[in-house]
Computed example of a mutant assay.
Amino acid sequence: MSGPTRRPTLRDVAGRAGVSTSTASLVFSGKGPVAPATADRVRAAAAELGFSGPDPLATSLRQGRVGTVAVVVEAPLREAFRDPFALAVLDGLADELEAADRTMLLVAQPADDPVRAVAQLSSQAVDAGVFPLCGIRDNPVVEHLAGRGVPLVGSGSPDGPGMAHVRTDEEAAIGLTTQHVLGLGHTRVAHVSMNLGLRSPTRAARPDDLEAALYLDAAGRLRGFRALAGDAAPVAVAADLTVGSGEEAGRLLLDVPADRRPTAVVCQSDLLAAGVVRAAWALGLRVPQDVSVTGFDGVDLPWLDATLTTVLQPGVEKGRALGRLVRRALEGEPVADVGFPVSLRVGTTTAPPPA
């Protein structure tokens, strides 16, 4: 019985074509000058031998890279794909990685089972790891990849030795919208927070939420809001980052007697803010005449019949900034944290409080 047929190699092609192996390699890589007649001879020899090109795994081992970057999404992927800001960040990151001839390996990591991603990555060779959406405070994937010597880049959290971040000052950023409504004269101001930890129903905030928070971006925004509005300001914590959860939080805050109803609601995302606007409308309240609402991110919401007053945080540009840090790390350059600027956009959802 004959053994398995040996796969033809680049050396075989070079021998058939009567050229050196390095010349044959240049023909397949397209990275060097080769006479057209010689290139045609090499391609003909390859076709005769059934050689489809160099083994990409062998090439990557020789070059010390595999061309893949692990992109860890600290949530089920379906949730990230429903969030226009997350999609914008991933788009910008993909642009930069594509320019560096790298592909993305998306790894979903639910907060209630973070170790699962370690098992998935343990059998994957990757050139770098990126945490683009500012997830949980302590992530076991960081220790795993850092132990393998893989460069790591994040968006504020998680953290680890040698990890570089594109950082938004979350406290100062939420201060833009909070100070805006306070400056309009609002004194009864409420807040809608993103989920601070493990999944729970939409609920009123608890005194220990900040100490127990797993998500540092949500905790930073809550801390920034309270620094300006005071600890007594009502806060609702949304179950997840959806319009539906925003609407539930809006009803929790607004469906109360008029003398206790907030006249402004500062939200930690545009999706949550859109839900609060819907809740106000459903309760017969006018936005902004009866209640002002602000968001965060500046995503496009063409289906909302209003322009949110919001914190502009361009997602595509943030993704590109993450990608540039990855490229520098892969090129052996020293990398350090960089700040990411945000700004206030005043839309049609804020006004002075009702008389």
Rank of each mutant, 00 (worst) to 15 (best):
A249H: 09
D259E: 15
D231E: 15
V237E: 08
D231T: 15
P257Y: 09
S245R: 04
L253M: 12
T242W: 02
L254F: 04
T263W: 08
P262S: 08
E248R: 08
A249E: 02
A236H: 04
A249M: 04
P234Y: 12
L228K: 07
P257I: 10
D240I: 00
G230D: 00
G250P: 14
A249V: 09
A236F: 08
G244M: 04
V235N: 04
A238H: 04
A258R: 04
T242K: 02
G250R: 02
D259T: 15
P262I: 04
E247V: 03
A236R: 01
R226Y: 11
E248A: 08
R260V: 11
V235R: 00
L253R: 05
L241A: 00
P234F: 10
L252A: 11
A258K: 02
A239D: 13
A229L: 08
R251M: 05
P234D: 13
P234W: 07
A249N: 05
A227H: 11
A236I: 06
A258F: 03
V237L: 09
A239Q: 09
L252I: 07
A238R: 02
G246C: 03
G246Y: 08
D231W: 07
L253V: 11
G250L: 11
A258M: 02
P262L: 05
A233R: 08
V243Y: 01
P257M: 06
S245W: 01
L241K: 00
T263S: 15
S245D: 13
A249D: 04
D231Y: 00
A236T: 06
R260P: 09
E248K: 01
P257T: 10
A258T: 06
R226F: 09
D255K: 03
E247H: 10
D231H: 14
V256E: 14
P257N: 12
R226V: 15
V235I: 11
A249Q: 03
L254N: 06
P262N: 09
R226M: 11
T263G: 12
V235Q: 02
V235E: 07
T263L: 05
L228Y: 08
A229G: 14
E247G: 12
R260H: 14
A227L: 07
P234M: 07
V256F: 11
L228E: 09
R251P: 11
G230E: 00
V237H: 10
R251W: 06
D240P: 01
A232K: 02
R226Q: 15
A233C: 12
A238S: 10
A249C: 07
